[in-house]
Amino acid sequence: MGIDIKIPIGLMFTILGLLITVYGFITRLDASLYNVSLGINVNLWSGLGMLIFGVVMLALAFVSWKSKT
């Protein structure tokens, strides 16, 4: 139906991934923030994970768009 769902998914996770990764990077020295997460910088890891997922989705959307045209 009209739009390829991979595009909004890819865009959203790329944006969220960038935001969370950057936030994780800025706050990497803030031990009190990561006290709850057992000292692990979960923002950095989740952010990177989302970024990769978002980019893969966009790449897949690009591939299926290419094969259609």
């Binding site: 009209g2 739009i3 909004p8 959203m12 944006i15 969220l16």
Partner: peptide
Amino acid sequence: IDYSVMIIYFAFVLGIGWALKRYMKDANA
């Protein structure tokens, strides 16, 4: 930062509805 995540998500939710609007030509769609 938490509110930003929330706002971005709901912007996409509404955006998808808006992008689909022009395909809604009949009851079947």
